[in-house]
Design a protein around this nucleic acid. Structure first.
Lengths: 233, 233
DNA sequence: GATTTTTGTCACGAAACCGTCACCATTTCG
DNA sequence: CGAAATGGTGACGGTTTCGTGACAAAAATC
């Protein structure tokens, strides 16, 4: 899960300083020297977060923030403003314009990273929060807990996500490729057979509770979560 | 220090009337036409006070109040409800939902301002005044005291707040990031692993009283306060 | 101002988890 | 029937994650 951060800063030295720090922390850094370039970048692909310097040639940082907040597509884009000194006015203006946070220069790399993390996690996902219940199984995403016949089932993170996806799309065959995309993520490179192993682990975890046959193999196609029995005689 | 007031009102004329009055009194006014917009505003930056109209399109004012009171972050946010006429039912409902005060339309600017000042003066002491009790534990925020099986447990301030938050939101996994935001505060920058250490200290403090397993680790996700046992088989 | 408590960070080790492979059983099809 | 394809299964090394004890800085207390 790489995080893309767009840094908008006209001073090359500072830009590189920031970029190196962020990249050391495992973030992927996109660079823009002014607001126009930033807008072009964002127009092509939405980054996960934008770091904007307050003072920019041409369109100022605060104007950039306002522009981004006006557009529907970029309204929820996390923004952090870099303000020069402890100019209180700027901070207030910046936050009012719609920035999620501000960092005053000079700043420590740690502070910057901490703020970035804070802003990134503040976005509330709220997707897939509903409790799934089927065939004697109850999966609660908020509690990250699975109950089989009312008893707690211990699952690893991947098995949990796999079961969650299968239960969310029951009575439907999913190919190994689809499962890799939806459960592991589109960008990961793992063998398709890995899915088999996780299915096996999932089955093994459910089997002690008398729940077998819920996850069915469809030869040549993939796997399916089904409450209905598959008796074909 | 300027006071930010968020006014939630769908009638543009009334909204402007209120806004002009408040701004003349030196307050800074943020405007929202409905509850959804208000939630977005509040999500970005907490105002000092929120003025909510009772009648709103979509999510009603009272629903907005309830939502805000449910969330830990906005629990202490001062709220004033604008009710139509002297409908006694509405007043009671509004106050029960968690509003700090109500103002009936039509109102004089002086009255509104007076109420605002009054509410701001007696700002809520702290989040969560209620006594929490679960799994042999009893946490009293007012007394800042925790009882385990009736005996006093000695906890540091941070451990206390951590336990309070966990007990206030039980049976739910909280990531280290969320815990940092809500126990330490959004603008505190500490390592995520610090949460681990405090959880350990909390566990160590509870363990002498035979209370273990209350704070559970969910690998790859975070921690959970749960009364249900995790023992399988 | 000195002592005690609290707090954040780190290093280390244990445990859990993951991806891959080899091997075997079963099915499919020439 | 035999070969190829497909999926189940157990095991193994590498990585990630978490618990734990120690330590120094900061804060509170006396």
């Amino acid at each position: 899960m790489t995080v893309n951060v767009l840094v908008v800063e006209d001073e090359p030295a500072i830009l590189e300083l920031i970029a190196v720090n962020l990249e050391q922390a495992g973030l992927h850094v996109l660079r823009a020297a002014d607001a126009e370039a930033a807008l072009r970048f964002i127009g092509e692909a939405l980054p996960d977060l934008v770091l904007v310097d307050w003072m920019l040639p041409g369109l100022s940082g605060i104007e950039l923030v306002r522009r981004l907040r006006r557009e529907e597509r970029t309204r929820a884009l996390p923004l952090i403003l870099l303000t020069a000194r402890g100019a209180e006015v700027d901070k207030v203006l910046g936050l009012e314009a719609g920035a999620d946070d501000y960092v005053t220069k000079p700043f420590s790399p740690r502070e910057l990273l901490a703020r970035i993390r804070a802003v990134l996690r503040r976005r509330r996902p709220e997707v897939g929060e509903e409790v799934l219940e089927a065939g004697g199984l109850k999966l609660d995403p908020a509690a990250r807990r699975v109950l089989a016949q009312g008893r707690v089932v211990s699952l690893g993170p991947t098995e949990f996500r796999l079961l969650q996806f299968l239960m969310a799309h029951p009575e439907r065959v999913h190919s190994r490729g689809q499962l890799l995309d939806r459960v592991w993520g589109d960008h990961v490179f793992v063998e398709e057979r890995t899915v088999d192993v996780h299915v096996r682990r999932l089955r093994a975890a459910l089997e002690p509770y008398g729940l077998s046959g819920l996850i069915q193999t469809v030869r040549g196609a993939g796997y399916r979560f089904s409450v209905q029995a598959t008796q074909e005689a």
